[in-house]
């Protein structure tokens, strides 16, 4: 029980600016094992940037990160901003975080199976045979076992996104990060991807998800965070954020999205 309560991810006071534009103005997030946190907000609110700071695809200017039992070490660079001091640590942490992108970002020169085993074999140095076995099981789970020898270009958007979920799962991530996983899909393909994400939530995976699918966020999240202009405007269980938001802006946003 004690172990269960220990947070998989603690991120505190994240700041990020591009030039004079302040995108993140001190965002904090804590996720316990099994939490599903949805981040919502209008475009430009900083939700994708925040998600990308968690696996350091964007380097935050400031903030403290405790991920997967490790504190991320920072040093102050010549520009006066803080940078992660150990690239190897960042790489190690990233391989424990499964990222799913809006635009899938499968590697087009590899088959679906090769895409999925790439990280286990080359980053985690898992034995190839074991990696293939696991990858095939994951592909079966997302309904793409028959497509394992195909190249990404021959798959639909929904299939590509399911493949990229399998790719992210194949490193046994402690936390899954979803960056608007359905925003680039044709409407009729959204359902099949959400179904896969829902099944992951149901098996108790820790997930952080930036999304515009309000109904879905309400259904699967344990917590919802509403961002506005780089700050947390509202955070709480979905019943509160969607049902009885205290912030006026959040109320407005929910109302605009519900019809």
């Amino acid at each position: 029980m004690r172990l269960e309560a220990r947070p998989a991810l603690v991120v505190k006071d994240v700041h990020k600016s591009y030039g004079t534009l302040k995108v993140l103005k001190g965002i904090s997030l804590e996720a316990a094992k099994g939490d599903v946190v949805s981040i919502i907000g209008s475009s430009g609110s900083g939700k994708s940037t925040f998600l990308r700071c968690i696996n350091f695809l964007e380097i935050p200017d400031q903030g403290s990160f405790h991920i997967n039992g490790e504190d991320v070490e920072f040093r102050t660079g010549r520009d006066g901003k803080s940078h992660p001091s150990n690239p190897r640590q960042i790489e190690r942490l990233r391989s424990g975080l499964g990222m799913v992108f809006q635009s899938f970002n499968l590697w087009p020169h590899m088959t679906i199976l090769q895409n999925v085993i790439e990280a286990p074999v080359h980053v985690l140095k898992v034995e190839r045979k074991a990696a293939i076995e696991k990858a095939e099981a994951l592909l079966a789970k997302v309904g793409l076992y028959e497509k394992r020898e195909s190249y990404p270009a021959f798959l639909s958007g929904g299939q590509q996104q399911r493949a990229s979920i399998a790719r992210a799962l194949c490193v046994d991530p402690a936390v899954m990060l979803f960056d608007e996983p359905t925003s680039a899909l044709d409407p009729e393909l959204v359902g099949e991807v959400l179904k896969v994400i829902r099944s992951l939530a149901e098996e108790g995976r820790t997930m952080i998800m930036v999304t515009h699918e309000m109904k879905f966020a309400r259904d699967v999240s344990t917590r919802v965070m509403f961002l506005h202009q780089g700050q947390v405007e509202e955070v709480g269980p979905p019943s509160q954020v969607f049902g009885a938001p205290t912030s006026a802006r959040c109320k407005e946003f929910i109302a605009a999205g519900s019809h």
């Binding site: 990233r94 990222m99 992108f101 970002n105 080359h122 985690l124 790719r167 992210a168 490193v171």
Partner: peptide, 17 residues
């Protein structure tokens, strides 16, 4: 496309890889 390289970084590859 930059996204393909980000996907590689995101699974923990070092730049040389």
């Amino acid at each position: 496309p930059k996204g393909e390289l980000e996907a590689a970084l995101a699974v923990g590859m070092r730049p040389s890889m």
